[in-house]
């Protein structure tokens, strides 16, 4: 359960003030599938970063699973990112010198999971995302679709309750993008909250709830049943 209350985030560029998020109020319940759309610069990424505790709002309250997380110390926020949140990025963000398996293993290492368990869980993930043949390949030797599969495997290896995907198909062609969306939607089907930022209307329409943003504000917020 994500509850945002009067969240603002302002950036100062010289003497220019950018209201990246302007009084955002939003509640997303567990297991929802939400798409966020809007023109470039409308604040979608900033919103996702704040939900993912990568960024702090200038004002407002953020409750995650009933707990006020806005002012938690850095270590606590890192722990929540580790345990509850999975990020998927447009540019994959794989560590180039590590193999696919090692990239997937990273969150487990950060969480201090013992070596033997890591092995088992990475194997399972490689299996689930059909990456078994590519386990020992480095990102440079993988296709875009494979890279994003590795990234999704990494984002889900800790079994987070929320997946935040910022234009996950932005660097992929249409067909591969659709496959990646299917993978993410499968995660939603198994109960994970899924929040996807996209500017592809067609992909955005697949979500059960669609939020449109502009100039740091929520323009519309539609759910399938109310449409």
């Amino acid at each position: 359960m994500i509850r945002l209350n009067a969240i603002t985030r302002t950036f100062h560029m010289g003497d220019q003030v950018v209201h990246a998020l302007n009084d955002i109020n939003l509640v997303i319940t567990s297991g929802e599938y939400v798409s966020i759309m809007g023109p470039s610069g409308s604040g979608k990424s900033t919103l996702l970063n704040i939900i993912g505790l990568l960024d702090r709002p200038d004002s407002g309250r953020y409750e995650l699973d009933g707990r006020l997380v806005t002012d938690l110390p850095e270590i606590e926020q890192a722990r929540i990112r580790r345990e509850k949140i999975g990020f998927v990025f447009q540019s994959f963000h794989l560590v180039p010198r590590l193999t696919a398996a090692e990239n997937i293993e990273l969150p487990l290492i950060l969480s201090g999971v013992p070596q033997e368990q890591r092995q088992i869980r990475v194997d399972e993930a490689l299996q689930a995302f059909e990456l078994k043949q590519r386990a020992q390949h480095r990102p440079a030797e993988l296709s875009g679709g494979q890279r994003q599969r590795v990234a999704i495997a990494r984002a889900t290896i800790m079994r987070p309750s929320v997946i935040l995907a910022d234009e996950p198909t932005g660097n992929l062609d249409h067909q591969i993008g659709a496959e990646v969306m299917t993978l993410l939607e499968n995660l939603h089907h198994s109960g994970t909250t899924l929040i996807i930022v996209t500017h592809d209307r067609e992909l955005g329409a697949r979500a059960h709830r669609q939020i449109a943003m502009r100039d740091g504000k929520i323009l519309t917020d539609q759910s399938d049943d109310t449409r």
């Binding site: 990568l54 270590i75 950060l110 984002a155």
Partner: peptide, 11 residues
């Protein structure tokens, strides 16, 4: 990326 997947500053 490491921070996004939960590394602390001291990590």
């Amino acid at each position: 990326l490491l921070k996004a997947i939960g590394a602390t500053s001291s990590d």
